[in-house]
Amino acid sequence: MNDSIMNGKARISDIIIKILIYISAGFSVILLIGIIGYVFIKGIGSVNFSFLTTVTSTLKKTVGIAGNIVNTLYIIVITLLIATPVGIGSAIYLNEYAKPGKLVRAIEFTTETLSGIPSIIFGLFGMVFFGNVMGFGYSILTGSLTLTIMVLPLITRNTQEALKTVPDSYRSGALGMGATKWYMIRTILLPSAMPGIITGVILAIGRIVGESAALLFTAGSGYLLPKSGMGFLTKIMESGGTLTIQLYLSMAKAEYSTAFGIAVVLLIIVLFINFLTKYLAKKFDVSKVD
């Protein structure tokens, strides 16, 4: 640099760059306010009681997303029922049992890879493997199994980070008192790591709620409510489109008021999940992993 720091020229370029920095940072904020504002203004009119509690009927000429809300809940519950224990188990193995070596590296590399694979690839794989090979077809089960693989890294990594923050003295203390390893994990480690695990699960819920590409060709686009009684069980094997899928389909059919109505519902869920993770992070003071 030939410029002296006293040179007025350098100061001007500093100011320009500073302005650019502020503009860039402001962009994100304005963008967010714009998105939320626009969606609410356009969509809040379509959200009312019957929109949330009935299903679309061409006969009665009414629009409703109750079926999609139920489908979303089904997929969240089934996915988490499988992914949470597997993710936690995997984290426990990596943190408590495994010795550093090729195997651990392979598991960590594949976990990283899984979190980098785009959802459309998961969708193709789920369609072929769970849909065709396993024979589940377009169903809520196929969609849930596909999403299980997708959210697995999220739960594994959050649990792992949480386990890492548990002091080693807890472990040696428990083992020294004669507890077996499994007993120690069950009664000491898991309760201490619970805030991290819960954060991982909530982040996974957020991911599932917003997911669309992985579900389009796995869970399909059914929008009806389950029939009562056994219908609640058989629904698992039927096609069921989530809120995001219905949004996409409405948008493709140019039914924009329905699309914006769903967008409002989705944004409210996303905002709620965001505040919930923030609240938990503050309450338990766990360093959050992304």
Partner: peptide, 17 residues
């Protein structure tokens, strides 16, 4: 927080907008 929220918005909503 604005950046964090942007990350959470579902991609279909970006598509709609």
């Amino acid at each position: 927080p604005a950046v964090e929220l942007l990350a959470g918005i579902p991609s279909v909503i970006y598509g709609l907008l």
